[in-house]
Simulated assay, not measured.
Amino acid sequence: MMNTVKQLKKSNLPSLQKRRSFSDGNKNLYAYIAVALFASLVGTYLDLIFVGKGMYHFPVRLFPEIFTINIVFTLFILPLFTILFLFVAKRVQPFPRIIMILIISIVIFFIEQFTEQLGWFIHHTEWNHAYSFLGYMLYLIVIWKLFLYFSLFR
């Protein structure tokens, strides 16, 4: 005799859900890594362009005799920030994600000015910090769209 146990429709117990396969996790891992590498490259090249044009410079940087940019920011902080942003953005709905992008861009606007006061970052006198706000907002939107692309087609 064989007994079958079924969950009641009105039960408060959680139903057994299909677990994700390991390959689904790898797909997202590849998307995170690819986008973080892209973010690092974009940050590095934009810094090289803007420093080369004299729009800003980094008086405090690692290996100043070799690098004109702050490689700690472009190779470590920016990719880690990007992964954290993607991790959170993936878990929120579209409208809160837009608000999150706006808030992050505003916070970066103020952080940039604070780092100038610390002497870590100096802008040209003609620099408008609204450029940073708009730049980071565009950057985060592009990063998010690229992450979606890599998540779907890997």
Rank of each mutant, 00 (worst) to 15 (best):
L37C: 06
N70F: 05
V142K: 09
I108M: 10
T4G: 06
K145V: 08
L41C: 08
L16E: 15
L84Q: 00
G54A: 10
F87K: 14
S105N: 05
H57Q: 05
V142T: 00
F85G: 02
P96S: 05
I66C: 04
I69T: 14
P79I: 13
F38Y: 13
Q117N: 08
V107F: 01
L86Q: 14
V92H: 07
Y30I: 08
N70G: 03
H57V: 05
E65Y: 12
S21M: 04
V142D: 03
N26Y: 04
F95G: 10
V92Q: 09
R20A: 11
I103W: 12
V88S: 06
F50N: 00
D47C: 02
L16T: 15
F63C: 04
I71V: 01
P59T: 02
E126H: 10
L13F: 12
K27M: 08
G119H: 14
G119Q: 12
E65T: 15
H129E: 13
S105R: 06
P94A: 06
G52M: 01
S23V: 07
F147E: 02
F85R: 08
E112V: 05
L146V: 09
L29E: 12
P96N: 07
V92C: 09
S11D: 04
T82I: 00
R154H: 06
D47I: 02
P14Q: 08
I83V: 10
K10T: 07
Y56G: 02
V42L: 03
W144R: 13
V5M: 14
H57S: 04
A34I: 15
F50C: 01
I98G: 11
G25P: 09
I71T: 00
K6L: 12
E65I: 15
P96C: 06
A39L: 10
E116D: 05
Q113E: 00
I49N: 07
P14N: 08
Y32F: 14
T125S: 15
L148C: 09
K10G: 03
F147I: 09
L102C: 13
F81S: 12
K53S: 01
L13V: 11
M100S: 01
F150I: 01
S151F: 00
F133A: 05
